[in-house]
Amino acid sequence: MIEITPLAVSAADLVVGTAPVSGHDVRLSLAPAAARYSLRARDPATLAGVIGRALPTRIGDMQGGIACLGPDEYYALLPAGERVPDGAGLPVSVVDVSDRALGFVVEGTGAAAAIATGCPLDLDRFAVGRATRTLFETVEIILLREDTTRFRIEVWRSFAPWLWHALVAAIADR
């Protein structure tokens, strides 16, 4: 018979850490609260006019806190509480998703390697200022490279505990 010993930690007990976790060359912490908007439009100029901000022009670029995720899709990460006009009646979609995700900051010389434990992107080819939706193992994330050694990960809140602990495990096993 297979004897299943009780687990020290069950999946139900996983929570996002409140304190940063550090390895010898990488540190994981929770980003401060932010305003998040999903912005969509066929015509970027119309959307830029609605929100009163410039938009990045190439998929994967970031500008002024706004990342271009797809041909008609932008993701805005703004200071908490900041509001964006909803462009009612215009051919745009502005949706407040501030509470949909949590932000993680992964920084240090080992940051890319820690993320590469579960992310299939070639991070050596993922320049500073780039952003994309991708995966960490089975979990959808938005990955933003803020600096050579600093990344931000946006993850839907119910997946955040799993991702936090998967990254902690990755840091511990570096």
């Binding site: 193992e137 089975t138 119910s158 505990p161 602990h165 998967a166």
Partner: peptide, 22 residues
């Protein structure tokens, strides 16, 4: 399976109210 073991086997999604329920 790599890290997909024990508590990390797969994500267990919980609501913001789950903690109260527990």
């Amino acid at each position: 399976i790599g890290h997909h073991k024990d508590a990390l086997f797969q994500p267990l999604r919980k609501t913001a109210i789950d903690d109260w329920a527990a």
